[in-house]
Amino acid sequence: MGRMKFLCDIERCIDCSGCVVACKEGHHIPVGVNRRRVITINQGKPGEKSISVACMHCADAPCIAVCPVDAIYQRDDGIVLVSKETCIGCGYCFMACPFGAPQFPSGQVFGARGAMDKCTFCAGGPEETFSEKEKTLYGQNRIAEGKVPLCAAMCATKALLAGDADEVADVYRERVFKRGSGANAWGWDKAYQKK
């Protein structure tokens, strides 16, 4: 079985936030929860780059290691999922995650956090596939339908790649090859900095 992965090509991402909107709308994600976000560096300055980030579906994921109730698990294809019925909202996964992926809806009794919500790679959750419960709790299950995740499908510049790790790596390698040696072979350096 393949290994699912996201890859965001920072030479292509234009910070349109289409992926964020697609994810939020497509899964009916509660207010205050962002499964995906776009980070921009050097905004408005030379060297501006953007990257779209969600759950990285880590191998040896720290969130799985710290969860006190074992609510988080990893599928054989590498997708990390959470069982919202088991989750107690302690927030340890948020503290362990380097990427800020676990999100918590607020507004429960006594100001408690609800169950953790994060990117599912559009693969639903532990409930029965395509069931109403799965849809309400985790959103669409596009992987079971044979589709790529919403964010990657929506990406206008195809900066965000999702799918089998080998396929994604092939696409990206081809791109880098076409751009020339390194990601920066063509551009201002070539035109103006000829020694």
């Binding site: 060297g47 920066n184 551009g187 201002w188 350096d189």
Partner: peptide, 10 residues
């Protein structure tokens, strides 16, 4: 002027 607008290494 223009060096800054060139692509910086990724």
């Amino acid at each position: 002027l223009l060096t800054n607008f060139g692509p910086s290494p990724s």
